[in-house]
Simulated assay, not measured.
Amino acid sequence: MLPFTRGQFLANLVAYNEAIWPVQLAAFAIGILAVILLIWRPRMADRLIAAILAVMWLWTGAAYHWLHFAEINPAAYIFAALFVAQAAVLGYVGVAKDQLSFRPVSGAAAKVGIGLIVYATVLYPFVGIWTGHAYPEMPVFGVTPCPVTIFTLGFFLLAKPPLSPWLLTIPLIWSLIGGTAAFLLGMPQDWLLLVSGVIVVPLTVAYHAKADLGAPKS
């Protein structure tokens, strides 16, 4: 049983979107920048992509969960801590240590990864609008947890092995928690989130295992 109603959830989304405007435009812009960096591959592209993902997780943890969602759900303080922790891991592994490398490669994992990125940036809001959740009564890309998680998992499927398991843990947890909005709150755009973690983790493990088998023996 949720500690809030669907009406309270949607009203909270409206208040959040109105309070942070026009940050949504900036979030969409840096999301597109991450995709451009993936294709263009300039110097420091990997660090910049990791930094963009970290900023999205940090903003969503602090601004959405801590400052807004906590008004109707006390568990949001825990969610905020998880999102800030994910931002810290991305910042440490991908920016400070430069241990994340993103490549638009071929194969099943890459196709699913590209599909998740496209869904998070383009299709997610359209599904919401089509099912009756127009702005500002909708989760927006880059500043709310569900599209941020889908977008991040898409990039993880494009990451060159090895990928730290710590990077996958919190997105998997949130895919199961946040994805329940699909049926508990009538948010059909989150059905993909509910299954994305379950799909991405085995695909990532299989992709990395294949890469290990193909690596030259020392």
Rank of each mutant, 00 (worst) to 15 (best):
M44F: 15
M44Y: 15
A45R: 11
A45L: 05
A45E: 08
A45S: 12
A45M: 00
D46W: 00
R47F: 02
R47N: 09
R47D: 01
L48Q: 11
L48D: 07
I49H: 05
I49R: 10
I49Y: 05
I49A: 09
I49D: 03
I49G: 05
A50I: 00
A50P: 01
A50W: 05
A50V: 09
A51R: 00
A51F: 12
A51C: 11
A54L: 10
A54F: 03
A54R: 06
A54K: 02
V55N: 08
M56Q: 15
M56K: 14
W57G: 03
L58P: 02
L58V: 14
W59N: 11
W59G: 06
T60G: 14
T60I: 10
T60V: 13
T60C: 14
G61T: 02
G61K: 03
A62E: 10
A63R: 02
A63I: 12
Y64I: 12
Y64M: 12
H65Y: 10
H65T: 03
W66N: 03
W66Y: 15
W66G: 02
L67M: 13
L67H: 01
L67T: 08
L67R: 11
L67F: 13
H68C: 11
H68N: 15
F69P: 07
F69K: 01
A70S: 15
A70D: 09
A70Q: 11
A70T: 08
E71K: 14
I72T: 03
I72K: 06
I72Q: 02
N73H: 06
N73A: 05
P74A: 14
P74Q: 14
P74M: 13
P74K: 13
P74N: 14
A75G: 10
A75Q: 14
A76M: 05
A76L: 05
Y77K: 13
Y77I: 13
I78G: 15
I78F: 14
F79H: 11
F79C: 00
F79G: 12
F79I: 05
F79D: 06
A80T: 03
A80M: 04
A81T: 11
A81R: 08
A81H: 05
A81F: 12
F83Q: 01
F83L: 11
F83A: 02
F83M: 07
V84L: 12
V84G: 05
V84C: 07
Q86S: 04
Q86W: 03
Q86P: 00
A87W: 04
V89K: 02
V89A: 14
L90S: 05
L90G: 00
G91A: 04
Y92H: 12
Y92P: 08
Y92V: 12
V93F: 01
V93M: 02
V93H: 08
G94I: 08
G94L: 04
G94C: 02
G94K: 01
G94R: 04
V95I: 13
V95G: 01
V95Y: 08
V95K: 06
A96R: 13
A96F: 13
A96N: 07
K97H: 09
K97Y: 08
D98Q: 13
Q99Y: 04
L100T: 02
S101C: 07
S101R: 12
S101F: 04
S101M: 09
S101A: 09
S101W: 03
F102K: 03
F102H: 09
F102A: 04
F102Q: 00
R103E: 15
R103Q: 13
P104V: 10
V105I: 07
S106Y: 01
G107N: 11
G107W: 09
G107I: 10
G107A: 10
G107M: 07
